[in-house]
Design a protein around this nucleic acid. Structure first.
Lengths: 207, 207
DNA sequence: GTCGACATGTAACCAGTTACATGATTAA
DNA sequence: TTAATCATGTAACTGGTTACATGTCGAC
């Protein structure tokens, strides 16, 4: 049986970060600097935002693959800029990645949960205050999300603009759902832990 | 050569991974091999599980700090083992880290959410099937969590054992809350996306 | 007689961070 | 004058992965 040949010109394996950048550039061309700002606002919450030094390096790599093109903007007033734009090949690579059904697994790293997990070695009061601090941060984040959501919903009502805001809205809704779940969990955990703290205090006073 | 002297007095700042390992060794002494297995089962879900090569390297580093001690178990039948145990200094370092109120922020990386966010460039059918696949995986994970939860609740009822299982239970409950939130989100997202798919199909048939 | 569990490691590599370096403009 | 924002980068480093290397034992 003859082997099936798929001749594909330069299939390059890029890390996820590269595709984030290509994705951001699909909205509009941008400098490394503004890319960093956009990623801090938009993707940090469900993925992450690389250090600026890495963004600049990544842009140069993408350029070497022909996925983006650089254009220098020299200004007498402002600092010089390097504006990067997506090429057809870049868009193609991005689409191929998006439509690849193999989606990597989520990774969740929570130092707080780790401390909870090892709580038997911690000081009850400190553990409780760590969770309380987190609960407050979550509450603040939720408010920010709600404000952002309103802005998106307003703009989604405009005709012809639905597609542009549906996807960011879905991503935002995921964040909000996660935050609400974490808040509920924190309340429950704090109840358990205050009982534990009391029991521990009683146990120690008896000795 | 008396060059090798462990430096337990140093104020060393170790990566989180080191403290996970110290934490695992606080339950019982273990080999690198069984450490890896335990971490895959217990901490992978709310933190992550390093590659085995890293665990072995990390154990050697912890040993050089005097936080763990190694004992070789030579067996004629089984492969030789290196069993690592927590030292008082190691426990001390772990407790200090746990009680440090500066808790690092959670980091959440979801390639799926990234694909959703960039959904305007994706093929509707494929994006939907990616989310559906995820929903099924989440449902399976939830069942596994529920089973684990029952086991923990059973053992938490036993007197004197509460502390030992309260903390793993709290961590597990966090997972479950996150999974349930993600499932609800997926249902909502799939509804939105199927409407989008239809609209896109109508729009294209008109041209 | 091959496969999976047990068990430990090395070497090469890559991804990503931090600290450093430069320098203009604008606002307090 | 101090600080923030704009703007781009280099160098040194660390954390972590993958692939490779080595070997035994028990089960099918």
């Amino acid at each position: 049986m003859p082997e099936e040949e798929h001749k594909s010109m330069d299939i390059v394996q890029l890390p996820t970060t590269s595709y984030i950048i290509l994705g951001m550039l699909s909205y509009r061309e941008m400098s490394g600097y503004s890319l960093k700002q956009l990623m801090d606002r938009a993707v940090k919450h469900f993925y992450w935002s690389p250090a600026k030094s890495q963004i600049y390096a990544e842009l140069r790599r993408l350029e070497s693959h022909g996925y983006v093109v650089m254009r220098e903007v020299i200004s007498p007033q402002r600092p010089d800029k390097r504006i990067y734009g997506l090429t057809p090949q870049g868009l193609d690579a991005l689409r191929t990645w998006l439509d690849n059904t193999a989606v990597g697994p989520d990774s969740y790293k929570s130092p707080l949960l780790l401390k909870v997990f090892l709580g038997h070695l911690a000081s009850p009061g400190i553990l409780i205050s760590q969770i309380e601090a987190r609960r407050q941060k979550l509450a603040r984040d939720l408010v920010l999300c709600e404000e952002k959501e309103e802005g998106l919903i307003d703009r989604i009502q405009e005709p012809l603009a639905e597609e542009e805001f549906l996807f960011p809205l879905l991503a935002l809704r995921f964040n909000m759902a996660s935050i609400r779940a974490a808040l509920t969990w924190a309340d429950e955990a704090l109840e358990h832990l205050s009982r534990w703290q009391q029991e521990k205090a009683v146990g120690e006073s008896k000795t």
